[in-house]
């Protein structure tokens, strides 16, 4: 269920060292908020999938356009059918509840 306060951006990226810092570096440099990251390698490929939890504000289009410009980012989309509870579960893990 999508929520109005947050959005999950779904990325397909080249799987090699440095990709994660390229992406998080973009968020730092452009002063975008990044609330959570999930990342894992796609089996039998050289790519990974990343899910970024970000605030749903008027900068979302700019974030997506900037992500699309990154060399190792192959696909970017807003995930409409993602289960936001995944991030909630992680939240619980982090908080030790």
């Amino acid at each position: 269920m999508p929520r109005t306060t947050d959005v999950i951006i779904q990325l397909t990226v080249n799987n090699h060292p440095g990709v994660m810092s390229n992406i998080t570096g973009l968020f730092t440099r452009r002063a975008f908020n990044l609330e959570g990251i999930l990342c894992g390698r796609l089996e039998d490929t050289k790519t990974s999938k990343m899910y970024l939890l970000v605030n749903n504000d008027n900068r979302i289009n700019q974030i997506i356009k900037q992500l699309e410009k990154l060399y190792d980012v192959l696909e970017v989309s807003i995930c409409t059918n993602c289960d936001y509870e995944v991030f909630d579960n992680i939240h619980q893990l982090i908080q030790g509840k």
Binding site: P17, G18, S21, N22, G25, T28, R29, L70, Y71
Partner: peptide, 14 residues
């Protein structure tokens, strides 16, 4: 070098 390059280049290669 690549870490330093991230915010100031179009891309970097190692």
């Amino acid at each position: 070098t690549c870490g330093l390059a991230i915010p100031i280049t179009k891309h970097n290669f190692f």
